[in-house]
Design a protein around this nucleic acid. Structure first.
Lengths: 153, 153
DNA sequence: TTGATATCATTTGCATACGAATGAATTTTC
DNA sequence: GAAAATTCATTCGTATGCAAATGATATCAA
């Protein structure tokens, strides 16, 4: 290899040509695909509820009654998005809304009896969804992946 | 620790109580958050184009003229979604559409000169987006994470 | 106490994302 | 070669997801 070749290679490593940009190798693109795959697995196990709807119910089960905004923070949804999710859960009788006695701005959300039954019934399925999503990885790989994914999220 | 305690613990490991289900530890939930973070980073760097729109342009740059459906396959979008994305790129003059001479079902998509300029100009920014998305990880962690993420997607 | 800020919720507008149904054109199969 | 199955594209309906604007209420600070 000539000295000129070495120089070229060095330059290339430091400032890769635009030709080298491969969409299918970018984190964002693969992250989107991984998420898509998970949502598909979720839908196959739980057909009548979306992941965000499930997240809202599961979190309400954890924390009990909260304001709509607070719930949104807990499940990583902005105010506009969480409103739609809660509206649909309310329409199905899975959550109920009430006004905060003191702070009149707040809209309190809570599970109904039916909503509580639903989430308890669904949690075993949610476990299977998590398992199936992680199925391509070994136990050790799962531990590694989850650790790094948390760092990234 | 009594024998009874051991038995209880064993049972718990094999069939964890529903109490143990923590939303914030599930792959799907964290995957959604990681994706959200990436999209936010993308928007901060490239304000006038969404990740799916960028993906369409980047892929057209790679493969040249293709059918709308084929492009959808390449960037992991179903037919309905890709149509909307291409429509908006067309409205902005970044892609142009034409009919396939032989197979009259197909709608061919290609970059315009303006679209080609745009994607060439944006690729360096896309590199920064990838970098910033992966910034919480070390070089070694990035390699590990990407390998596992590919397996999962 | 009041004026400035901040918070909570809602609404609008735009952009994915996908299932399901439809129609047109092509390919396969018998 | 005609019927059956497939493929390509479009449309409709529903559900996130987020920015920006708005209104109501609370909180903070001068």
């Amino acid at each position: 290899m000539s000295g000129e070749d070495n120089l070229l290679k060095l330059v290339e490593v430091e400032a890769p040509d635009d030709q080298d940009y491969l969409l299918q190798e970018q984190v964002g693109f693969i992250l989107r695909k991984a998420h898509q795959r998970h949502v598909a697995i979720f839908a196959a196990h739980i057909g009548d509820l979306t992941p965000p709807q499930f997240a809202a119910l599961a979190k309400l089960r954890d924390v009990g009654e909260t304001s709509q905004n607070q719930l949104g923070t807990l499940i990583a949804m902005d105010a506009a998005t969480v409103k739609g999710v809660i509206d649909r859960l309310k329409a199905r009788g899975l959550v109920e809304l009430s006004k905060h006695e003191v702070d009149k701005r707040r809209l309190l959300v809570n599970l109904t009896a039916e909503g509580r039954d639903a989430i308890e019934r669904l949690i075993p399925l949610a476990r299977e969804i998590t398992q199936e999503t992680l199925a391509p990885l070994s136990a050790k790989e799962i531990a590694t992946f989850m650790k790094l994914l948390v760092k990234l999220a």
